[in-house]
């Protein structure tokens, strides 16, 4: 564990709490892509199967439980209490275009051709693109509630912080994880446009609006 990874995980945790807070305070899941949230459940469940057979640490154990539990809770809220505030008509990204390629790539690029390692690779690749339906929705509506942009910013910061974590681990432990690094760079890259608008507008106190 190093500071970058710890802060990254903290940002990830914070992003989820911000999202749940947004839903409860605005009594709405407006502007949130159900598809992205469903993909995150798939990401966490396929990656954390090792909860059953690998002990890492108490921290690792509880974080995994939190990510699986909270992502399922978010889906539950979106399908029950806040269902009327959800608009499937704008959440139209075709996730089969993500699931298909991620499956194929996971079958090709993995550290061992075993079910759990393939699922681990799949979860890494899927996570890297899981935000696309959300960014697509944002692009379609052209604007977002400020709290939703804080959620996305925290999520982007989480991924960005994993990059110095890998650099640090390379120099201190000599480990390199090409799959996680490649997917992580792609994932962080997807946030660049968002971050530009976030920094130049939201952090200056303006509303998040995309140029027409």
């Amino acid at each position: 564990m190093n500071l970058f990874r710890f802060l990254g995980d903290t940002a990830h945790l914070a992003s989820i709490l911000v999202l749940i807070h947004k839903m409860h305070t605005t009594k709405s899941c407006r502007g949130i892509s159900f598809k992205t949230q469903a993909l995150y459940v798939a990401v966490f469940v396929t990656r954390y199967l090792d909860l059953f057979y690998r002990w890492v640490s108490l921290y690792n154990f509880f974080m995994k439980l939190f990510f699986i539990g909270s992502s399922c809770y978010i889906l539950f809220l979106m399908k029950t209490k806040f269902r009327p505030t959800q608009d499937p008509a704008i959440d139209t990204f075709r996730i089969e275009y993500l699931l298909g390629p991620c499956t194929v790539i996971a079958l090709i690029f993995n550290y061992k051709f075993s079910p759990t390692e393939i699922l681990w690779s799949f979860s890494i690749f899927l996570e890297s693109v899981a935000i696309l339906p959300q960014l697509f929705l944002l692009q379609r509506t052209g604007e977002a509630e400020t709290i939703t942009t804080h959620y996305l910013a925290a999520l982007g910061i989480y991924r960005a912080l994993y990059i110095p974590n890998w650099i640090y681990r390379y120099f201190t432990e000599g480990v390199v994880d090409p799959i996680a690094i490649t997917a992580g760079l792609v994932q962080t890259g997807l946030y660049i446009d968002f971050f530009y608008v976030y920094v130049t507008k939201v952090l200056q106190g303006q509303k998040f609006e995309l140029p027409a």
């Binding site: 690998r54 690792n60 061992k112 681990w120 480990v175």
Partner: peptide, 10 residues
């Protein structure tokens, strides 16, 4: 391959 180092990451 070696036991992958990445498995301690979240």
């Amino acid at each position: 391959g070696k036991e992958c180092s990445h498995h301690d990451e979240l």
